[in-house]
């Protein structure tokens, strides 16, 4: 496995293009090993078409995101659930 990965913080911008809530702060559960943790702590490989986020526990793919000129392809097959913190959107850190 290459060592030049980023972390899920790098997904914040690309996902902010799609979702109103900050998905990088969500907690995901890996479909392969069951580990839970913030999307921001996934290992993100960006030297590919799109972004591939892998579980830091078992290295299985949790999420893939590919952007074409007119659409975004989001593959969430490796995430059983996403728990997305919701604030009222008025305070700092609200829906950004």
């Amino acid at each position: 496995m290459q060592a030049d990965y980023l972390d899920g913080n790098a997904l914040a911008g690309p996902l902010a293009e799609i979702f109103a809530a900050d998905v990088s702060a969500a907690v995901s559960r890996c479909a392969a090993c069951g580990q839970t943790g913030p999307v921001a702590s996934l290992r993100v490989y960006d030297r590919a078409p799109g972004l591939v986020a892998r579980c830091p526990g078992c290295e299985e793919v949790v999420l893939r995101l590919v952007r074409s000129p007119d659409s975004a392809w989001l593959d969430l097959r490796g995430a059983v659930t996403l728990r997305i913190p919701l604030r009222d959107g008025t305070g700092p850190g609200g829906q950004r």
Binding site: N9, A12, G13, S41, P85
Partner: peptide, 12 residues
Amino acid sequence: LRGPVGGWFVWR
């Protein structure tokens, strides 16, 4: 530019 983004690596 696009942002601000990233709500996890933050200090309040």
